[in-house]
Nucleic acid binder design. Structure first.
Length: 471
RNA sequence: UGGGAGGUCGUCUAACGGUAGGACGGCGGACUCUGGAUCCGCUGGUGGAGGUUCGAGUCCUCCCCUCCCAGCCA
């Protein structure tokens, strides 16, 4: 039995699409599950639309997701000699032929066929030519597809799918300028690279019989196919930019953890009982092609957000800290300018759904708030709460042991003395030091902030109240 | 038009031919620092019509709806 080998073969014409990422994930998981290899191939034969920038985005996206490949990246544009070689071989063996039909003729043929309620396809006009017709231009090269019989595909997701050769036509394998076409290159590459399993979107299901016939003509067995349903937008159409963020790197920038994105993607079309949250190790050990669903799924941003929250909460603080540092950096914050980043993460993990949110809500640990959230200030920074702030300030200024437990005692004591509920004391303090109504528990918040900043900010809030009162 | 693939709560998904359940979302409640955390409750579904069967989401037939392919894009 050959070693299992899967591949991900995007075309570099934009960004790493969420749907492509899921295909890559399923391919990667299958290879990892079975101790095989995962190959990255860049299908860049469309010279007009392929860009180096897009290649970079794909590589960056794969890296961020952690989908490491064992071989590649391979570029099809670097393999043109090989495609030419095999094209020539098929010509020599009579398995391919030159076609001189103009695009105009083919267009007219297509329209005529549609009008006659037939399937639009090449009619084989040049199939048996022995010489070029008069006034012929540069020919394309077509594959001599079998005319009868069936192609049976035992798809790992779809099951048995049968196509009749009479429904297919002689596809173009090389253009007039000599460049190869998709259905040909994909077969040659998968053959040469020893790909055993092709996991891809089911938009290619109907290309499969053509490719199988090519494998046979080249004298090799086709790989196993697993065609994965599309991901749709809310309107039931293919997921596209008009639905919202579809690029993997956009989710990175919005504060998602890669493992949360992977978790969402694996569950969008695959399941293991009722389990929702998976670690990468669990995915690797549980994933299998046969558990992939048959129907297309609709992308649900809310569930992705919930999963991101779950992963942030469950992760080691050190792990989250690495990603948070990047988002703080984007806000010109140096994590070294405040409390230990891991401690900040540990305190904030339950309070943020994304890393962007966590970064925003953690700014006050690193610099004084520019201003107070208006509603929170109205409610908590007023003459009636000033006494609480003064009392807490005084008690804390005498505190030597700056730890959560001791801080909590001071806040409790202030509440006792003033005969207030704890919340009536803690919330003004919270607003004073953080600028808003939400932060980690007040004792943890102050412990992390440090004594100096705490006292300074409480004092600033007291002064602010006085200024407001003075009109 | 021809061919191919699908159809379970709003969304994702589970259910050997034998109790339609879980999660997200939405609504409500509880939680003596804020809650964006936690706990509890409610809501809500097998596209339609026949057939087979003691029994069907599950098998069969027809209808309806959706997606995909038919670029010398991939």
């Amino acid at each position: 039995m050959a070693k299992i080998k899967t591949r991900f073969a995007p075309s570099p014409t934009g960004y790493l699409h969420i749907g492509g990422a899921r295909t890559a994930l399923y391919s990667w998981l299958y290879a990892r599950r079975h101790g095989g290899h995962f190959v990255l191939r860049i299908e860049d034969t469309d010279r007009e639309r392929s860009t180096q920038e897009s290649v970079n985005v794909i590589l960056e996206g794969m890296s961020w997701l952690g989908l490491d490949y064992d071989e590649g990246p391979f570029y099809q544009t670097e393999r043109f000699d090989r495609y030419r070689e095999l094209t020539q071989r098929l010509l020599d063996e009579g398995l391919a032929y030159r076609c001189y039909c103009s695009k105009e003729r083919l267009d007219a043929l297509r329209q005529e066929q549609m009008a006659n309620k037939q399937k639009p396809r090449y009619d084989g006009r040049c199939r048996d030519l022995t010489e070029p017709p008069e006034g012929a231009g540069e020919p394309v090269i077509r594959f001599r597809n079998p005319l009868d019989g069936e192609v049976v595909v035992e798809d790992r997701v779809r099951g048995r799918v049968v196509f009749r050769n009479s429904e297919l036509d002689d596809l173009i394998i090389a253009r007039a300028d000599g460049t190869p076409t998709y259905n040909f290159t994909v077969v040659v590459d998968d053959m040469d690279m020893g790909i055993t399993h092709v996991v891809r979107g089911d938009d290619h299901l109907n290309n499969t019989p053509r490719q199988v016939n090519l494998y046979r003509a080249l004298g090799v067995e086709p790989p196993v196919f697993a065609h994965v349903p599309m991901i749709l937008g809310e309107d039931g159409k293919r997921l596209s930019k008009r639905h919202g963020a579809v690029s993997v790197l956009q989710y990175r920038d919005q504060g998602y953890l890669p493992e949360a994105v992977l978790n969402y993607l694996v569950r969008l079309g695959w399941s293991h009982g009722d389990q929702e949250v998976f670690t990468l190790d669990e995915m690797v050990s549980l994933f299998d092609l046969e558990d992939i669903n048959h129907s297309a799924s609709t992308f649900n941003p809310q569930k992705l957000l919930w999963l991101n929250q779950q992963h942030i909460m469950r992760a080691e603080p050190a792990h989250v800290a690495r990603y948070l540092a990047h988002h703080l950096g984007e806000r010109d914050i140096d994590p070294a300018d405040g409390p230990p980043l891991e401690a900040v993460v540990a305190a904030q993990q339950e309070r943020a759904k994304t890393l962007v949110e966590m970064a925003e809500n953690s700014l006050f640990f690193y610099r004084d708030p520019a201003d107070y959230e208006p509603k929170a200030a109205r409610k908590n920074l007023k003459p009636e709460t000033e006494a609480a702030l003064v009392r807490v300030r005084d008690l804390l200024s005498e505190l030597e042991d700056w730890r959560p437990e001791a801080i909590h005692e001071c806040v409790l004591k202030a509440a006792e003395v003033l005969e207030l509920k704890l919340g009536k004391v803690a919330q003004p303090v919270r607003v004073a030091v953080s600028g808003g109504p939400v932060s980690p528990p007040i004792d943890q918040t102050l412990a992390l902030l440090g004594k100096e900043a705490t006292l300074r900010r409480i004092q600033a809030a007291i002064d602010w109240i006085d200024r407001q009162a003075a009109g």
